[in-house]
Simulated scan of single mutants.
Amino acid sequence: MEPARALADAARELAAQATLSATLDRIVALAKTLVPGADSVGLVLARSGGLRSVAATDRLAADCDTAQLEAGEGPCLGAAGEEGTLLVVDLADGRWPGFAAGAVRRGVHEVLACPLVGGEWTGAALSLYAVAPGAFDHRAQDLADLYAVHAAVAMQSALRADDLRLAVVSRETIGRAVGILMQRHHLTARQAFVLLSRASQRVNIKVRHVADLVVTTGVDPDDTAELVRLAERVAGPRRGVRSRASTAEQVEAARLRAESAASRAADALHRSVTTLLSVARAHERAAAVHLRAAAAGGADAGYHRRRAAEHQRAAAAARRTLRARRDGSGTG
């Protein structure tokens, strides 16, 4: 099957998955099938926290992804960051000593790591592992790059759908907790929600978690000690009840929060610029793949030229936005 048709079929299959976990599992499975030379495939993703392994075709890929995350180095971290697609043909080159030795012991000879670019995460990469030397040629790299664009679109849609599902569940849980408190304490809906909100602030957990504890255990939001105990039993030790601080402590805490907010704002701007640059590069690579396919001729040449033009326009738009943000922030 021609690469363009295989990618189109893969995109349709990814879009047909019913859940986030099914989409992630299918992303790695299709990558192994589509990209010549791939023996194992893993996927790492970072949203609100650091990178974590979210899908793998087998134990080899899972172990290799985990080894990179634990070592804090490796091609998947580079691809998920700012380095773009990385093809490693010699793991013994000394670049990632904390990861390479273990990978070689597991029989891995080559790694092809491709970034997945999207607005629903701060970093993501698809890692393809080969046990045979010379497994990944330029055709495999081009195909992996193009597939990564389709995978990113599917993953972004799945994450948004999952977030919406969680939001609906949270709203239902909060509504049930409000109803319980209205009946128990003869409150209005607003008063019951205020009770949940104040408990959330006291014990430093989200309102939906307080509501879930009220619904599942019957605990009263005013019973701070029991709320803390139950929350720690469910999710491990938390920061607990906030104690009353002195004025000096409050001033210091406010200063630290301001510094933290400024740091988060700077990090967000950096991630935004990095994401836009990755998006532009991904579209440029995709355009190059389609242009090469068009140059080869054949019945699909017109299709490939149109797709190349679409990717070129998308890349140009991303770079215009990137320049505007850099100019606005004063970054170089």
Rank of each mutant, 00 (worst) to 15 (best):
L7G: 13
A8K: 11
L14D: 13
R26D: 03
I27N: 07
T33S: 14
P36E: 10
G42Q: 10
R47V: 03
S48E: 15
G50V: 02
L51D: 12
V54F: 03
V54K: 05
D58K: 06
D63G: 02
G84W: 05
L86F: 06
V89R: 15
W96R: 05
A100V: 03
E110K: 05
V111E: 14
E120I: 01
T122N: 15
A124V: 07
L128H: 11
L128Y: 10
D137W: 03
L143M: 13
L146P: 04
A152C: 06
V153P: 02
S157G: 11
R165F: 00
A167N: 15
S170M: 02
E172H: 10
V178L: 02
G179P: 02
I180P: 01
H185G: 04
L187W: 13
A192Q: 07
A199L: 03
Q201L: 06
Q201N: 09
V203M: 05
A211L: 03
T217K: 03
T217F: 02
T224N: 05
L230D: 07
L230S: 09
R239I: 06
R244H: 11
Q250P: 02
R257E: 15
A258R: 14
A286G: 15
V289Q: 13
V289D: 14
A293P: 10
G302R: 04
R305P: 00
Q312W: 02
A314I: 02
L322R: 11
R325S: 08
G330A: 07
G330R: 10
